[in-house]
């Protein structure tokens, strides 16, 4: 990389670019992470005790999770719910992305994309709050369902996981739609036409032609959505109930309510390992490499 930069900009500029990049990566990304890893392996001590005889590396913070049934169940619930959010988002995004990429005229596609993007100019907290209003017990959605006669009494959407799922699918939709759209858009329309011409119905055409082609896009979208969902804090905090707590909320509590950064760091790393594990699994499942996803 340095050689290419040198050839292009000369030595001083190339050194400056590499230097800034290095400082940023090391001082602002790598070192704080290492610091947190270090925290996670040390006991939580009073300032006076740090460096004293009680200080030393231990796995105790990691073991805590496995000794706490409630935390452990929330940990796995976060995993399954995030997988579910990811699948739901994929289900909603695929038809939308296909429509945008292959059916809509350029004008329609541009309008649709604009309509999708505009709400994202608003802060995530505010968007989530608006879902809070929509899904409220006496909110507009219940009113509409009641007036249509579809339900007899209002539903408590915000009581279980429904609100969290809806809020997350909405919040991370674009992270799924765009990779899918990019992948499907690059498919030659004649491939679809050829499959139809050879007798395939539309389900089979999608299954055999469009989805295999869009696989890297699907993998990218799934990984991004899963990471965001698993690491989400605002949506479960606002739209969830005490019964639908997310693992991030427990991490938050360790840090800012328990004041036990060491314990919080250990929990955070367990979540990170979970996410990396999921990413590796998806990549293996879809038989895609990092290079495919970066495309």
């Amino acid at each position: 990389m340095f050689r290419q930069l040198k050839a292009r900009f000369g030595v001083p500029v190339a050194m400056a670019i590499v230097g800034i990049l290095g400082v940023w990566l090391i001082a602002m990304v790598t070192l704080p992470q290492l610091q947190m890893i270090d925290y996670s392996f040390r006991p939580s001590l009073l300032p006076a005790e740090i460096g004293g005889p009680k200080d030393g590396w231990t796995l105790a913070n990691y073991v805590t999770l496995f000794n706490n049934d409630i935390h452990l169940s929330i940990f796995f619930k976060t995993l399954w719910s995030s997988v579910f959010v990811t699948l739901l988002t994929l289900l909603v995004s695929y038809p939308l992305a296909y429509y945008l990429a292959k059916i809509a005229t350029p004008g329609q596609a541009a309008l649709c994309l604009l309509l999708l993007i505009v709400p994202f100019w608003i802060n995530e907290i505010l968007r989530t709050f608006s879902w809070f209003i929509l899904l409220a017990f006496r909110g507009p959605l219940n009113e509409i369902l009641l007036s249509l006669g579809l339900i007899e009494r209002p539903i408590r959407f915000l009581n279980g996981d429904t609100g969290v799922l809806v809020g997350m699918v909405y919040a991370y939709l674009l992270f799924m739609v765009f990779p899918l759209y990019n992948a499907i858009e690059s498919l030659d329309g004649n491939q679809i036409r050829a499959a139809r011409d050879l007798g395939a119905g539309s389900l089979r055409t999608h299954w055999r032609i469009v989805i295999p082609h869009a696989k890297p896009g699907i993998a990218t979208g799934c990984i991004m959505t899963f990471m965001l969902a698993a690491g989400s804090y605002a949506v479960p905090a606002l739209l969830g109930s005490p019964g639908s707590r997310w693992f991030t909320q427990i991490i938050y509590n360790w840090f800012f309510e328990g004041g036990d950064w060491n314990q919080g760091a250990a929990y955070a790393f367990l979540l990170l390992i979970l996410c990396i594990g999921f990413m590796a699994l998806v990549m293996r499942l879809f038989k895609v490499g990092l290079a495919d996803i970066a495309k």
Binding site: D188, N190, Q191, R193, A194, A195, R208, I209
Partner: peptide, 8 residues
């Protein structure tokens, strides 16, 4: 048979 063949 398509102009670009459209083989899969």
């Amino acid at each position: 048979i398509f102009q670009n063949l459209a083989l899969f």
